[in-house]
Amino acid sequence: MRAAGGDEVPVRGPVRAVPADVVLVALAAVDVGLQLDHYTPLESALSAAACAALVVRRRFPLAVFLLSLPAALFSSVVVVPLAALYTLAERGRDRRLLVVCAIASALASALPWPLSEYTEDDRFWTFVDFVYLLATAAAPVFLGQLVQARRDAADRLAEVEEAREHERRLHAQGVLARERAQLAREMHDVVSHQVSLIAVRAGALQVGAKDTETRAAARAIRGLSVTTLDELRHMVALLRASGGRTAEPAAQPTLADLRQLIDTSGIEVTLKGELPSGIGAPAERAVYRTVQEALTNVRKHAPGATATVCLWHEGDALGVTVVNTPPTRPVLELPGSRVGLIGLGERAENLAGSFEAGPTPDGGYGVRLHLPTPTAESGTTG
């Protein structure tokens, strides 16, 4: 749902909101009903409409508040304007609009009605009433903003906890991968070597033995040793692959994996441009890691922001630019070592390129990777 300030606001469960809406509308109806004797038919209809509009105040907070102003002007009703102000403050993010609405509510309640009866002698007391009513209108505004800040903090903490859990899983996977790689090395260097010696000795015994039973036993031992050695080699290959020790280029991220990275980032990302084929695995990995680190930082430090990933190729240079918009939700100050950005800069230098990162004029953040176009003779690796 989009609130008055133009920001997306989560809609709470309708089932839980129904009892609160019923009680609030009932209180507003009682508040208005106590003053019906002083209303004209038009004023009664507008006041009743303002009470009924409280049901949809979460979906249309600004419209409901504007509808409450006539009720505040016609009489001294309290529930309708204060409820409308609270909902607008709890849903909206434009503080200037909230100040204007609080002043409008206090002014509508302070002005005498009908306006034709307003005299010069009423100015002082009207001003006094306006000051007190403005202080009263500020209370639901502050309360609504407090509830909104609490909700934003809870959502942000949930995102931080989710990111930490993801990092813990990655760390656990890294530890497991290193253990598997170490186990693969031990199996290859020790176990496989010993089984190979058994097979060689069994073969020698099979050739040199004189009696039939010994040759048969040696043949069986050699056959089992060869089978065991094949199975060990297969297990070592699997452990190396799962442990990240495979030397196959396909195990490293490439530009073909960029779309999946963007789709699973949890951020609204626009991908533009493309890079020529054949730029080399080091350059592809550098582009991938730059986009990966940039989107990770957007999620951690710019909640609610959108990002644009632009792949570009100009003459003898190529690279990627990632720019995000300012955050739309409050940002919690989190510790950061900037190791990721430093690593991207070092990777770019290894490829004879450059890396830049910094805030944008509109309050967002941008990173840019610049690499020379690899040539057929280039042997640079990264």
Rank of each mutant, 00 (worst) to 15 (best):
Y365L: 01
E165I: 00
A241E: 15
W312A: 00
L73R: 15
E117V: 08
V175H: 05
Q145M: 15
S265T: 03
L146F: 13
A137N: 13
T375H: 11
A202V: 06
D230W: 04
L62D: 03
P253R: 11
H171T: 06
V79P: 05
A102Q: 11
R185T: 13
V99Y: 08
A4W: 12
D37G: 09
V287K: 01
S47N: 08
A177Q: 14
P335E: 08
D257P: 01
P114I: 11
V11F: 09
G364D: 01
R59K: 10
P140K: 04
R329E: 14
A17N: 07
V147A: 13
P10M: 05
D129W: 12
P372D: 03
A26E: 04
G304L: 01
Q292C: 00
A135Y: 06
R123Y: 11
A63H: 10
D152Y: 03
I262D: 02
L261V: 03
E117H: 09
G244S: 09
E213L: 15
T246P: 12
S68V: 07
A135Q: 11
Y39D: 13
E167F: 00
D94W: 12
A307K: 00
A305R: 00
Y118D: 05
L332R: 04
Q35K: 10
L238H: 14
A209Q: 07
L332Q: 09
E165N: 06
E268P: 00
V367E: 00
A71W: 02
M187C: 07
L85C: 14
A137F: 06
R169L: 13
L134V: 03
E268I: 03
V23Q: 09
A163M: 12
V131L: 15
R57W: 03
V99H: 11
P253A: 10
A149S: 14
I198Q: 08
H234P: 00
L24I: 07
L229I: 02
G319K: 01
P249Y: 04
A217G: 06
L157R: 14
S337F: 01
P372L: 04
A26W: 10
A216T: 14
E314C: 02
E274F: 02
L205V: 09
L229A: 13
Y132T: 07
L275I: 05
A48Q: 03
N324K: 00
E293Q: 08
A216H: 10
L24F: 07
A48S: 13
A376C: 03
T264Y: 02
Y86F: 15
L341T: 05
A251S: 14
V141H: 07
V147H: 10
P372S: 07
L238R: 15
K272D: 10
A250Y: 08
T375F: 09
G304M: 02
T328Q: 10
V56I: 12
V226K: 06
E162P: 01
D230E: 15
